[in-house]
Design a protein around this nucleic acid. Structure first.
Lengths: 337, 337
DNA sequence: GCTAACGTTGCACACGTATGCAAGAGGTGG
DNA sequence: CCACCTCTTGCATACGTGTGCAACGTTAGC
């Protein structure tokens, strides 16, 4: 008993002894496709069951050089879209028999410090949802032959990553422009998120391009850092201007909710008659009865699924970098005509 | 080059050769408090830096029997409170130099299947935020000497866990009862979440007890499964009854938002004059201008911090099980008088 | 009945690090 | 100058599993 109390784990050796075989047989019994007689495997599995044996994933990965761990790095947790993304990724990863190692960067710049640390945990690959990522870090991963896939963000030219995947932000924003134009709006404005992110840039570009197709141009432009307070401030500036816009497209839903609150509460505007408002992300609060916000859905689950799939593709084969732009879906609700 | 291209990792041996020492010296250089001359450590660290060496955490944990991994298991992801909790836990875990292995159970019952799997990853301990947990699983963990800490849920008597931690739901709910009573409400109702969870039971009990202290009793009671649709249905039943309540306390914010939407949109009630509404969790949407929901804050960050601390305490020493009830804070806003 | 082929098994080593132990270096006190 | 102690270092082994290789038993084919 004194001995048993110190032991935390049943090893393959004990199972082997109980089943009357060698450790190799035990190992092979748990390795799909290994050369082992069906009857032997049964005996081993029964012995394992009896002892409560589970293969030690740590020891296994030391040999196979595959940990089964996938790093998930996310910055800007304040943004609820990223929170949902992490969940979707975690579900997708564990559905494929791997385990997600989640790292959260409190500040946007902290991502760079996290990634080398993740490497020491021997992750097989990393999914990064962060607006910023230094070149030095990607080189580190290239040297370690650990694939990186970027989410909700395009890779810059110099970045040596295994792929990037994001919604087709340009097309999604263009759909909003189309909606504004065809419902008679003549003075459309845009509120950007973080100016240096590819998502915000693409949504701006798509919106402007979509407007141009209808002979319209931007009647106002501001930025709100993707959060409520920022959206609030931007809304006050835009709506307080001499020539007030009659439609505002926000780079995400949180800012759009702020616009709605400011428009109704501080400027007494009626939506959508006096002002059309649209957001991006299809976040949960926008669906609430008091807002009923028109927005663009990015297809979060599919994005997560494709991202993990792309990473797995890069795991064994030296896949060429993949780039994927997923189609968006316009969710028309009560804040637009 | 052909050789270097196959090698993914710099090992301690290579660092040792470059620094002109043995592997042991390299190992000790990276072990705080190990017996190593300061000058030797410098030489080793410099060589390591030059080669880009990082200790292999997998190999290390095989020896130390400490993986540095902490399992985080969460069920019911639909509930945004759990999503925020996972994030807070992840941040807290990595702040203490460990890494969170996040597992999400799609259904409430799936937690039981996840936990044994987590064990094979050699997690040092597990944090569980799930309403249900079978006895068999806790026994498994006890056998493996892997501590479990339960979050936002009390341990039942038979459960052999290292501790549980939750908000003082009884006291928090009593504060709402107090608020309703002192603002002249005479017909208070309650909407439970999931009936078999300790959080819902405690909030009900605290609310009823608080009312009793003011000579009041429940004028209505329903359940809404902690989600919007359930809250909607419950609100319709309660508000459609012959003797309509003049105050409703919901076991979480999401149901409270549903109550507000139904009360205003379908029954034309004015809040808080015609109906007081309060929720629980202090979720983000409740703070939006269109709702401005009175609620109870659980102190999420502190809960996460205490939980990880409790788990760490149980890691080395055979700590006695800890039980912690964190104080709640009433957040009075516009949906109550 | 003999040989070749095949499926199955065990041996031995590898994965990369931590650490007890003993030996060596260096210093101090008598 | 010697004995003793402290600090540092390297050697060897352990952690638990995967897998190439060779040996074994069995069967099929002729």
């Amino acid at each position: 008993m004194t001995d048993a109390s110190k032991r935390r784990w049943v090893t393959s050796l004990e199972v082997a002894q109980l089943a009357g075989v060698s450790r190799s047989a035990v190992s092979r019994s748990f390795t799909p496709g290994a050369s082992i007689a069906e009857e032997t495997r049964w005996r081993v599995l029964e012995a394992a069951e009896q002892l409560g044996y589970r293969p030690n994933a740590i020891a296994r990965s030391l040999n196979t050089r595959r940990s089964g761990l996938i790093g998930v790095v996310v910055a800007d947790v304040g943004n609820p879209f990223y929170a949902r993304l992490v969940e979707a990724l975690a579900i997708e990863i564990q559905a494929r028999g791997r385990a997600p190692l989640v790292f959260v960067a409190k500040e946007a710049g902290a991502t760079d410090a996290l990634l080398p640390e993740l490497l020491s945990f021997q992750v097989d690959g990393v999914l990064v949802a962060s607006a910023t990522l230094s070149l030095r870090v990607t080189q580190l991963y290239t040297a370690a032959r650990t694939p990186i896939v970027l989410l909700d963000r395009m890779a810059d030219d110099g970045e040596d990553v295994s792929g990037d995947i994001s919604a087709d932000n340009v097309a999604g924003a263009a759909m909003v422009a189309e909606l504004f134009a065809t419902t008679g709006r003549r003075r459309p404005a845009f509120i950007a998120g973080l100016e240096n992110t590819s998502t915000s840039r693409d949504r701006a570009a798509g919106f402007v391009a979509g407007l141009a197709r209808h002979g319209l141009s931007l009647a106002g432009r501001d930025a709100g850092q993707y959060n409520y307070a920022g959206g609030q401030a931007a809304a006050r500036r835009l709506l307080g201007a001499r020539e007030r816009p009659d439609a505002i497209f926000c780079a995400n839903d949180e800012m759009a909710l702020a616009v709605l609150d400011v428009a109704r509460g501080e400027f007494g505007l009626s939506v959508p008659e006096g002002l059309s408002v649209a957001g991006f992300d299809n976040a949960a609060p926008g669906a609430l009865a008091a807002y009923n916000l028109t927005t663009v859905d990015q297809g979060l689950e599919r994005m997560a699924s494709e991202a993990v799939g792309m990473l797995e593709g890069a795991l064994d084969a030296s896949h060429p970098p993949g780039r994927l732009r997923l189609p968006c879906r316009l969710v028309g609700r009560a804040t637009t005509l």
